[in-house]
Design a protein around this nucleic acid. Structure first.
Lengths: 337, 337
DNA sequence: CAACGTTGTTTCAACGTTGTAAACAGTCGC
DNA sequence: GCGACTGTTTACAACGTTGAAACAACGTTG
């Protein structure tokens, strides 16, 4: 047998004894359809289990109903959790989300921005790592774009993010407030002109400077557990190892925690530890992880809303910057049992 | 301005001075095109940055180039890691993957099977939790289907999975081999007729029976950290608490680990702990987690291959069952430092 | 040189949908 | 009984693509 494929408007029309367009009108909820006709059509629709062919609809309307969510990597828990919220928010608009993984590589992010993908999408939500404001400004592709998770101030695109500088300052203040004096930052990036790393570093520096404390900064290349573990090992090998570490995300913190505990030191007694992201792992580690919890639901919803405005609205609307809330979650890794 | 949308075959044809079909032939690599014409067309293609409209192509060909990957939840690390492999394998066939989350709910899985989704897809890879063999057999939707991660023997669909019974038996044997005698299973499900839980339970039982040891089984509702933590608390409250626990997945094990350590007990000295899935968290927990590592890449690739065969092949091909490999990863949670 | 096959190219129709415009049937006011 | 209006329905075309079929210009063969 050939492909068993669903009924089309034509089939419905034939069965209900009306024109194709009338069926289309019923399907789309057009107001001026007589009750009798509507009933006939709806009967036929359910009898044949009609479902619209979205390829045809897309072709006709020039819209696909699909948006892309471009993330560094889906298997980083923060992004997995976040994508769930994005998918849910998009589903309310009957949008489908396809996930593209950039691995944080500049070249991949560039391709996303240039609209080089197999399937056309109505819009893109990008969580940028490598791309900078200058590249963004040079973008020619007209696909609607929203940046998620990073503020590129006065950039050419809508974006939504928590206030990374302030959040980082809050965490650092918390560590200092415990009486720690050798507070290190873990997660800076060597050649990052943009991205969240410089912002979080700035927040850390503000807090340290405010208390006249010396800065210690450990760099990584990627925000992964193994990199956190390695960077922490380097910190411990110093002449004056830190007594507190602010890791720029939770994965780094969990890697660092592993290194500290393996070395026979205690958290938080010997080294207090804090992260940022509030991934679920940190709520069940031993000790549990102090962290900043961005309001992921709000981030996701706002990103989708901004994208909708951008898609529906005029192309020349000036870009918006929207903030999202966060909370400091103090747990055992700084407070003890 | 209106929607800035890409060039169509017509635009290319006009520019190159040939017919639309000839452009189509070039785009699709049709053999009989003269070098001169081909060059002209390719020049025009790159000049206008042509990219095919896949909605139109889908409409014409009746195929979308999109497959659905239906998982319980994306923010379970195992599934996040697995989806990455699926996406990569699908990308090699130029397939796009959309992820649907079932939350392990029967009703959602049913909708997936019945093909109730907004966008039509060429095939579905389903990682089933709740659905049983009988429901599968009653399925009427003709969309190609592959089951991933569970064996429903002699079921009506292709599937790929590791040998859950044997894997569970191996882990349990490992725990028994440490000299433990009060080995508990954590992760059974109360009313599960199908799914992996009964298989893993069966493997546990085989091993326990082979050594004449008494069985202890703790049930959960979902495979999440909090459930593992709670179930472990119940086990510890028993008159004879276990000295080893095989958790049916790593999330449960990490939750259980948290409970054990919080109670002031040591892992593995007081309670040895093993999981299944080999998620990254378990490689960085303290102690690191002994687990079964399914070959996720092989699982994903096989699932995609099976789906391709099912899509391209005759509809009446009998369903295939394919196994995938796994390895026992012995780490600190059973071995100590 | 007529019949035939090959290569290169084109014409045509169709996939399922919806916007536009127009047709059609009533109803109202005068 | 006419025009104007409202409400309901329809015919048509088009979105961009590709399979089938047709066609033209060859070279080959008997």
């Amino acid at each position: 047998m050939g492909e068993r494929v669903g009924a089309s408007l034509r089939d419905i029309a034939r069965l209900a004894g009306v024109s194709v367009k009338t069926v289309s009108n019923v399907v789309n909820g057009y107001a001026h359809v007589s009750p009798v006709t509507r009933a006939k059509v709806e009967e036929a629709l359910s009898q044949l289990e009609y479902r619209p062919n979205l390829s045809a609809r897309s072709l006709r309307q020039g819209r696909t109903g699909v948006i892309a969510l471009a993330l560094p990597e889906l298997d980083a828990p923060y992004f997995a959790e976040l994508s769930r919220f994005v998918i849910d928010a998009a589903a309310e608009l009957r949008w489908l989300v396809v996930i593209e993984q950039t691995d944080g590589r500049l070249e991949r992010e560039r391709r996303i921005l240039d609209g080089v993908r197999d399937h056309r999408v109505d819009g893109v939500i990008l969580s940028p790592i490598a791309i900078g404001a200058d590249e963004l400004a040079a973008r020619t592709d007209a696909t609607a774009l929203v940046l998620l998770g990073e503020r590129i101030h006065d950039g050419p695109a809508d974006h939504v993010a928590i206030d990374n500088v302030r959040a980082a300052r809050d965490v650092t203040e918390h560590l200092i407030g415990l009486g720690r004096t050798r507070v290190a930052a873990l997660g800076a990036e060597d050649n990052a002109a943009s991205g969240t790393a410089p912002l979080r570093l700035a927040g850390y520096r503000e807090a340290m400077a405010a208390h006249g404390l010396p800065e210690t900064v450990a760099t990584v290349e990627r925000y992964r557990r193994d990199q956190g573990a390695a960077a922490m090992a380097a910190l411990l090998a110093r002449a004056e190892p830190p007594d507190a570490v602010f890791c720029f995300n939770d994965l780094l913190a969990l890697g660092a925690m592993r290194t500290i505990l393996s070395a026979g030191l205690r958290v938080p007694e010997d080294v207090a530890l804090a992260g940022l992201d509030d991934i679920e792992d940190g709520r069940f580690s031993t000790p549990t992880l102090t962290t900043v919890a961005p309001d992921k639901a709000q981030l996701a919803r706002t990103a989708v809303d901004l994208l909708k405005q951008r898609i529906d609205g005029p192309a020349d609307r000036p870009p918006k910057e929207v903030g999202a809330g966060y909370r400091l979650m103090v747990r055992e890794s700084t407070l003890g049992r």
